[in-house]
Design a protein around this nucleic acid. Structure first.
Lengths: 240, 240
DNA sequence: CGAAGAATTGACCGCATTCAAATGCGGTGG
DNA sequence: CCACCGCATTTGAATGCGGTCAATTCTTCG
């Protein structure tokens, strides 16, 4: 039940800013020293745990590069992936000093850990963190709608649209030129996708084959798909 | 499908701080003038719309008193209540300038609308808003877990625990004295509960009667229930 | 009292889950 | 090179939880 050793590895999706317009807050930070009072930089390999639900949480983590999953579990082992985070996103924002979630890396991850003091003292930093939290809050709203009201196929379509760069979301540019195809990196196992979408692994697999048979996606490897018509895929997401 | 005109009215639950320890940020603010640069105070009757998804959003709303629902809808009418907010909570935090949600009042509501300028300029205000957003983010995490992984009965039990003051959550005090009963105000229609829990009204109704038949709750009116044993109810929430 | 809306209950259905088996893929060692 | 193992994924068949449709009861209010 605890899922996954990883066969997936390098995935570039998470290495550039997850949300279009924002660059990582700490971009260009010197990676070297851990001076007291300075933001602390820390690296994690792929598929490792950064912090566990219930751990004492140290400050506020900002992702410089890589992908991170925020996870919650029920006592009987049911597992839900709450958020998928990329460069620029923040987590560890529990106000109680105890982490309310488990954070696991999807790829190698570089973090900057901002102390409470640093956040309080730096207006620019704080305002960027604030902006990012707003963004993540909106993403959570969308995800709650998905979990509460969408069918399995709609969930998978929405997920694939979300993993795509530069389309979908508020300011979708619409089809670009004659062909409207896109390559979509996935970099998550079927189990992880299932836990993110509130489904079982079997249902996710069936939804994949269903979309493939419908001609909406194509794939040979299972950590990437091609959508020959992005708009057709988007149509199936239930959001339009 | 668009749900509800209201039969429920006065409900004191939302009139004191939703989350135990925090008082409204703007408590004690003079309700009178709308001086430029001053936070703007605005009142709304019960069961009215504050802002609609897609509206241009003006600043950041803080709830001084009353209850507010944040709602998202799919184009075909499916409806999901994303958050239930009370005094001290904030919303309207979309970074795009366009509201990503609809906000409706549950009770008469008093709002303080903070301009971007006010938030930027007032460190104390900003830090309180920040703390509140963290809290709300944690609540969203819990709710995503509920929507993704809990059964109908677990959802309703969790909901009832959440509507209860002073129990459940991180620092549950455990049973108080010999009897462990609690009165739980609800103040929402079955349709609203269903839309919050990602269920249909019929399933919610069935879950209510199921809990009642099991002796876990009792009620005569349908906008309030009594739980003779809070711990028994909590046990059914799936979270312990 | 009667009308209108909210909630409950019942019967049936369908989508997603569960349980189980088969397939495919990568890596290891003979 | 190929057989074999481990693991992820796919596929199939059966079950069941929650949804849908429909009828009834309850509540509130004019």
């Amino acid at each position: 039940m605890i899922a996954s050793s990883g066969r997936h590895s390098g995935n570039t999706k998470f290495d550039s800013s997850w949300s279009p317009a924002l660059v990582p807050i700490a971009a260009g930070l010197p990676a070297a020293p851990n001076l007291p009072g300075q933001p602390r930089v820390q690296n994690f390999p792929a598929r490792t745990t950064i912090v566990e639900e219930g751990d004492h949480a140290t400050g506020l983590c900002e992702i410089v590069s890589g992908g991170v999953l925020l996870i919650k579990m029920l006592p009987d082992g049911r597992r839900q992936i709450i958020e998928i985070l990329g460069a620029g996103d923040v987590f560890g924002v529990s106000p109680t000093g105890v982490s309310d979630i488990t954070a696991e890396t999807l790829t190698p991850v570089k973090l900057v850990i901002h102390s409470k003091k640093a956040v309080d003292g730096d207006p620019e930093l704080r305002s960027m963190i604030f902006a990012r939290m707003r963004l993540q809050m909106c993403a959570m709203h969308d995800h709650a709608l998905l979990l509460g009201r969408k069918s399995a196929e709609e969930r998978l379509s929405t997920f694939l649209m979300r993993m795509m760069r530069g389309r979908g979301g508020y300011g979708c540019a619409g089809p670009q030129g004659a062909s409207d195809s896109a390559d979509i990196p996935i970099g998550m196992t079927r189990q992880e996708i299932a836990d993110y979408l509130g489904l079982t692994i079997e249902t996710v697999s069936r939804a994949f084959t269903s979309l493939r048979r419908a001609g909406v996606i194509a794939y040979t490897r299972n950590d990437a798909v091609t959508a020959p018509s992005v708009c057709a895929l988007c149509q199936l997401s239930g959001s339009v």
